[in-house]
Design a protein around this nucleic acid. Sequence first.
DNA 1: AACCATTCCAACCGCGGAGTA
DNA 2: CTACTCCGCGGTTGGAATGGT
Length: 304
Amino acid sequence: MEDVKARACIRKIQSCEEDQLDLIRGPWTVEEDFKLINYIAVHGEGRWNSLARCAGLKRTGKSCRLRWLNYLRPDIRRGNITLEEQLLILELHSRWGNRWSKIAQHLPGRTDNEIKNYWRTRVQKHAKQLKCDVNSKQFKDTVRYLWMPRLVERIQAASAATASVTSTTDTVTAQLSLRREVIGNEYAAQQVTPSYTPENLSTATAASSDSFEAQVSPVSDLTNCTYNNGFHVNNNSNPDYGFQASSQVDYSDLSDNYYDHRGGVGMDYQSSNYQPLLDGCDLSDNLLSAEDFLFLQQQFSFNI
DNA sequence: AACCATTCCAACCGCGGAGTA
DNA sequence: CTACTCCGCGGTTGGAATGGT
């Protein structure tokens, strides 16, 4: 209790000192950015409070650190979150929860703030639309057993499209439709006849997670992993899921694309050149297409 | 064109841990 | 061991941008 009072007192004093120093709050100006960039270019980052003073910035050390790490850093990756990144965020969040900085470590060039914002604005939005609590088991299961496999499908479809630009999209579309039908039926079966128990579900989930962790962490290993879509795990089959081993998705197709497009060498999923080939999916930022959303709503309706 | 609602993201805040004198 | 400072994290907010009526 005394400690709390002391901390509050210290903060009050700090706040007064900040006022006396005419510290600036709010949006950064171009001049401030230049000062910060130039100072760090010469002296390096760290020791943020003294850095703020020495650089002649009327900002708190915290503010300088935030501006640098979330905006000015040269290796910041701009643009929309890619499908692979979405998949990774979903997977890592299912394992670590709101450990944004930890998740961000596995997404080169992305900041914890960006991932946090993505989660709050996109994922939580979808949960809200589905009238489902984002922390509920139902929603988590949906992410793992529907959204993530769906993302893998879309990634593969995109990969296939670039592998054979001249091939028709009809085959891919037909395959996706078929797979969706299978997934939909399986999920509906789960909802109507909940043959799985919390125990076997957690086993399957853990197995899937472990498998992913073993092969994906660190994230650069994504290039070699085989992603189990959660319905069925080869070395720990759970008949209650009734999903066939053949549904396992080989993730290795991502290997050529995952990092290359960061440097602009390889494929860029957001390039307008590829958009028409991707089954009408908006790869720019949507976690789910309208079609997916309708599909999910239908699945949820089984439970209502 | 004007207004309102929603989305998105940069920035801030409070807290707790690590380091140090 | 204590007091203090600094740093980093996760949660929250404010306002610009965008979309809808």
